[in-house]
């Protein structure tokens, strides 16, 4: 698997740009986890939220583009253990979307996020009661719990759980990168022509539907070491797209 601490020195084929991208995303997710850890002891949420939004935006685009231009066209195979790399890859993307969406929703709830989550779980567990009545009572229970625990504990609880969710997301992300590199990239190299690989890589690095088409590749450049940036520049020069800035 791609390692943050080891420099990537060669790209054997265009799709190997994935190693550079994974490395950049891993560095960014480590930074976000670190901010979430600091937030538990009173650190700022503003920088954390900005990093989190960037992380989710990149991963969602990355997953969507892979589904369409990378695993979509592949003919899947089935390993002895039942693994089907292309379809499993898409399922892992769905899991990332679900977890990522969950974190975004949780952050939107603000400092009472954990309590709201606890009370929502309580409502779900009491299906037999009339819903409107239950929600009203649950809101009162949430208020009572808030009073009993006190503001500081409620905030601590929310941030603790946010940190947990972010680490869970990172673990799922790293597992996914590992699986993709081990099982999907060999399929891509075996089935796609050099031109197809090149176009797939370009799609992963440039957002043709955005006014700022370079938002992905510029982010990747910023996260990499100088030798790795040179590799990316060489690959970029082989695209017939906007020139590097």
């Amino acid at each position: 698997m791609t390692s943050i601490s080891e420099e990537i020195k060669t790209l054997e084929s265009p799709i190997d740009v994935m190693y550079l991208m994974h490395k950049a995303y891993m560095i960014h997710s480590n930074r976000t986890v670190s901010l979430a850890e600091k937030a538990m002891s009173g650190g700022s949420l503003t920088e954390l939220q900005a990093n989190l939004e960037g992380w989710l935006k990149h991963l969602l685009y990355h997953a969507q583009t892979e589904d369409i231009y990378m695993t979509g066209p592949l003919k899947d195979i089935e390993h002895q253990d039942g693994r089907r790399p292309a379809r499993d890859n898409e399922k892992e993307h769905d899991e990332l979307r679900l977890l990522g969406g969950g974190i975004a929703d949780y952050v939107e709830k603000g400092d009472k996020g954990a309590l709201s989550e606890d009370i929502a779980a309580l409502v779900l567990s009491r299906e037999e009661e009339e819903h409107a009545n239950l929600v009203h009572k649950a809101e009162n229970a949430e208020r009572a719990l808030h009073q009993a625990l006190g503001e500081a504990r409620v905030v601590d609880r929310t941030r603790r759980r946010l940190y947990q969710k972010i680490v869970e997301f990172q673990v799922t992300e790293f597992d996914h990168f590992e699986n993709e590199e081990a099982f999907v990239l060999p399929l891509v190299k075996g089935q796609m022509s050099a031109e197809q690989e090149l176009e797939c890589s370009r799609r992963l690095l440039f957002d043709d539907d955005s006014e700022t088409t370079r938002w992905i590749i510029d982010f990747i450049y910023n996260e990499l070491e100088s030798g790795e940036r040179e590799l990316l520049k060489q690959l970029e020069s082989s695209f017939s797209g906007p020139a590097p800035t």
């Binding site: 009491r126 009545n133 009572k137 208020r143």
Partner: peptide, 15 residues
């Protein structure tokens, strides 16, 4: 939950 007593607008749920 049905047995809990609530004043309008404020809670009186005990520990």
């Amino acid at each position: 939950l049905q047995d809990l007593n609530f004043d309008e607008g404020k809670t009186c749920i005990s520990n």
